[in-house]
Design a protein around this nucleic acid. Structure first.
Lengths: 247, 247
DNA sequence: CGCGGCCTTGAGAAATGTCAACTTACGTGG
DNA sequence: CCACGTAAGTTGACATTTCTCAAGGCCGCG
């Protein structure tokens, strides 16, 4: 069951494709961050030809662990949680996807994780077979994917350290620093860190409970390290936060 | 400081290279498992030309986190622990390398982890620049590396679930099942699982303490799920072990 | 035989989890 | 516009798991 809403392509006559191409990939606001960063104008038109704009509402599951991996995605606007479930319902969030992020690096025949939108989210969807076909003809793109896979692996290894050897305070501090750095690359530096996910999502990404996350954030706020604001935090004492994150 | 002992090449006259090639890569016992699995005879000779046999004693550190990533390795015989350290000495083992494993998938300009041999270990060492040069001329090899990176990422995601959401019993049971499966691919199926690492290494890979590992293994042995043997365990009740690992 | 490294076991401590109550924010319908 | 209901977040009290510290055992090796 496909919960995504594919717009444009389904209703656009073929003759409109080129017009849309110029509006979409070429004009894309997150292109410099995404897999398509290094592509030339002509390549972008090829990419555009197989791109399907897609948007989902908050909470919508658009990738389900174990199902046939038919599509790959780039996040355009919005955000998503990527997670794995145990048979008894325990959940581990393996990452959050923000604008520019690519979902589809580590794919076998089936998806290895599930993904839900955290808020109304726009994505570029690509048929996986089409996408692989395009990649095989473009060494630059292939290299870019390899670089992104390398990054992901390094991030995953850092996450193992966080989950295996850091305490709750270090995990939360590190999480906030990490989110700040990720948003900085998207929207530029800011002491206000958007947190589109709920406390339970933070807990499930850090291997903690919602209560421990809440208590730790409250303590940070009480100690004037952060200020809690709607859907995020403002960093008041960066030095202290970095020290607690041991970074 | 390079702690590896490079043999053969340093003393071999160039004229002997071809002879060594036939003895080394072509006759390699772990080739079917390694990065070089899909290579044709002629390609193997190219690989051999840049390969440097290397062997290290137990406990030798041959990769140091943060140092310039000059070499990549394939394990031939023996095993290694790959780990990251925090400034206060806490250690997270991010994986164990067994025969056939490739070290060098997730490389930036510096190594992202350290590696020590667990026992006397023989490796194929490649200069990273030479290796990349060879890869870029061989799409098969490139594909193989991409597949291996994908595998690593999936394994890393599973490890996040283990570290974030599983209890000590599940971690240990899962670890044993996992090691059994890895050895099965190398030496064929067996209920005897070699464990070349110490208890402290197991603890540091599972985010536990040595005492918790020891207690849990003792309990498994008391419950006749395993039998502890020198440098490993024998699985007595596979069904129970799989159940505890939730696999 | 004695030493050192590794492992095991026990007892008590600490961090985090669990359960429950309460607060806050927000959207909906009267 | 307010009252209500619901979802999310916070806080407290207590439980549990795992850690810490300490002692002792095992075993290979000089």
């Amino acid at each position: 069951m496909d919960l995504c809403i594919d717009i444009a392509r389904a209703i656009d006559p073929v003759s409109h494709v080129q017009a849309r191409a110029r509006l979409e990939c070429t004009a894309c606001s997150v292109r410099s961050l995404a897999v398509c960063a290094a592509m030339k104008p002509r390549e972008l038109m090829e990419l555009d030809a197989i791109m399907r704009p897609s948007q989902v509402q908050a909470k919508t599951t658009f990738i389900s662990e174990g199902e046939a991996a038919s599509s790959v995605y780039t996040i355009n606007e919005g955000s998503a949680r990527l997670y794995k479930l145990l048979s008894d319902g325990r959940r581990q969030i393996i990452g959050f996807a923000l604008p520019g992020d690519f979902l589809g690096l580590a794919l076998r025949e089936t998806y290895g994780f599930s993904a839900d939108a955290l808020e109304p989210t726009r994505m570029c969807r690509f048929d996986r077979v089409d996408f692989n076909g395009l990649v095989s003809g473009h060494p630059d793109l292939s290299t870019r994917l390899h670089d992104m896979a390398t990054s992901e692996l390094l991030i995953a290894q850092d996450q193992m350290m966080i989950l295996g050897r850091r305490n709750a305070e270090e995990r939360i501090a590190g999480f906030l620093v990490n989110m700040r750095n990720r948003w900085a690359r998207i929207r530029g530096p800011s002491v206000t860190v958007p947190l589109p996910m709920q406390r339970l999502d933070i807990a499930d990404s850090l291997g903690l409970t919602i209560e421990t996350v809440s208590r730790t954030l409250s303590r940070f706020a009480r100690d004037k390290v952060i200020l809690m604001v709607p859907d995020g935090v403002r960093i008041l004492n960066e030095k202290m936060l970095l020290k607690m994150a041991d970074q």
